[in-house]
Design a protein around this nucleic acid. Structure first.
Lengths: 158, 158
DNA sequence: TTACGAGTTGGAGCGCACTCCAGGTCAAGA
DNA sequence: TCTTGACCTGGAGTGCGCTCCAACTCGTAA
């Protein structure tokens, strides 16, 4: 399999694949007589897993560390496990936050629908929706230069 | 409330608050006689909500758009709602992916524990854990210069 | 009065994760 | 043989989201 095929199958660009190789996320493949990368199909499972780690918020440093540990074989099993366990904790926390946010969004959407329908909104419901809606409070529209954001001070440096 | 107080209460740095103001995420506050920003406590709810959007993966462009719509008052309710609804869909998808990943991580952790204990791993179980473990396949360790990554080709350009 | 700490500004710098490019090599098909 | 088109390399550029900095002002407490 050449880099173009792998790109297609993995969903990454050839540039990204070469970049991952450069930084050490994926191992250096063998080359054919012309110097072109030849990949074994098993690399796809590794890329898929890396992708999963990335998509769930693992930073590049940890992915790199995990990749590095992987090359060390079975001696690194315990550390790899601990890395995954700590990522697992982050994933659990993220799920909690997302679930919470889902509720907030739902409340707000309902509130907006009511407001769109011209309903007067019950203040109790408003606070339940944790709303911040409406025109921003105490906006200073008069004292700033639009381009620079500089305030005309009485005598700056004069 | 001055910027330092707001920073403490919101968990953002004063630099970040000024940056948010500069790009338009938060409204320009009033100033005191000395030109210092004076904040109304209600801004905290807005910052909190922005933070929630950011923490759940909404990019800066959409947050900016939402902030902009907010300044337009009730005329923008429908568009704000649609923005939130589309974010909601992303959040739902993210929860699904995280939940899936949680399973993959759990499988891998169990697998690692077994391997650490010196168990021979049942191949069927291995594939269930979607494993990519072990030394990387077909690593090319011999043909590259360590510093440049350049392969000594037989007669490059000679 | 002076020293200090909190605030002001514009602008530079940074880490992440790519993405693009110039200028080249190579293999295979017309 | 010639021409594609896929691939190679090192390095520059990009967008996000801050973060840090220099150089300044202001209000207050010793």
């Amino acid at each position: 399999m050449r880099i173009g095929d792998l790109a297609e199958k993995s969903g990454l660009s050839t540039d990204t694949l070469r970049y991952y190789e450069k930084i050490g996320l994926i191992p250096r493949p063998l080359r054919d007589a012309g110097g072109r990368r030849i990949y074994d199909g098993t690399i796809l499972r590794w890329i898929e897993f890396l992708d999963r780690l990335k998509a769930t918020g693992m930073g590049i440093r940890d992915r790199l560390r995990y990749a590095e540990l992987r090359t060390l074989g079975s001696a690194s099993l315990a550390e790899r496990r601990s890395l995954l366990e700590s990522h697992r904790r982050k994933v659990v926390a993220d799920i909690a936050r997302l679930t919470e946010t889902l509720e907030v969004l739902d409340d707000k959407v309902v509130l907006y629908r009511r407001m769109e329908a011209g309903e007067t909104v019950d203040p109790a419901f408003e606070s339940c929706a944790r709303t911040e809606h409406g025109a921003p409070p105490n906006q200073d529209s008069s004292h700033h230069d639009r381009r620079t954001g500089a305030r005309p001070r009485a005598d700056r440096k004069a």
